[in-house]
Amino acid sequence: MAEPLLSVRDVHVRFASRRGPVHAVAGVDLDVVPGEVLALVGESGCGKTTLIRSILGLVAPTSGSVTFDGHVVGRGHRRLRRLRRSVQMVFQDPTGALNPRHSLYESVAEGLRIHKVEGDEIGLVHDALSRAGLRPAARYAPRYPHEVSGGQRQRALIAGAMALSPRLLLADEPVASLDASIRGEILALMRGLVDDTGVSIVAVTHDLGLAWNIADRIAVMYLGRIVEIGATEDVIGDPQHPYTRALLSVVPELEAMERQILRGETPDPSRVPSGCRFHPRCPVVASGEAERLGILARCTGEDLALAPVPGAAPPDRVHAHLAACHAVSADATITAGGEGSAGATPG
């Protein structure tokens, strides 16, 4: 398997907020290989957006490291600039992300100008617009954001990102603000870009349907941590973490599962529970199953990291199916903190 394009190692992001310190990202390990789509799934406040912003250096990690293409992402302006040519971002709200005073042409050309890309600017811009599905490009280029539809704005934003031929595309809820009918078109475009150009995509979303549509792997985040990660088929077909199971059960599309609506609100990253951070809402704890398994004390008192799912066929390091749950890893080795994603699977 190819070397990871992006490696995130034990990244923490802490903020100061009015309600006290917020631990938005609390130790995340993640690898992205070239040409794959990874869906980062979770509720708002789980730190998924902060995590991808820290990959671009838009927020500085408090600790931990991000390595892109063999280089550690630093804070210096020049290094960030180089990074921001190879890593591009697509935003949830295309209307806000385009300067209303700039034509689509100027918005797409902006990255080319910032990075002083050599060559025929008009040709590059038109090429990017057509590849993003805005054809004929010459007709769309001089238009302004308010003159085109929401779906076309998102296409323009993707064109602006792809004009620089990036190797990694970070997409923050790329279809959440779009109509249902437009959604599929944009997702098809993104998947097509991966297949044609070999770009990798990390898509932040709360929509498991998006993951099923385009993602090779899924990482489920809860309160600043990845609680389950694996190939899409594994995570959807055989969810291990009770949080993943609950998320899947409330997706209206999936009738097969009994609905498991978690009580309580979206968790608050300024007040992380002790022990397993999910235990106050965990159905395994609430139903008394944890007690039967004899792990209740560990659930409430012992923090845990990702561990390989027992019984799963061990593929390579990057594609392993991992989960952070005492009930799952009751018979697997538990490493309290640190190298969750590393190492071989136990027998």
């Binding site: 249902a180 098809a188 099923w212 899409t232 999936l254």
Partner: peptide, 17 residues
């Protein structure tokens, strides 16, 4: 537009209009 999750027919095949 919203796929049936787990349905192989919609895997890698986002459908739109």
């Amino acid at each position: 537009a919203f796929p049936t999750i787990g349905d192989p027919a919609s895997r890698y095949r986002p459908s739109g209009l």
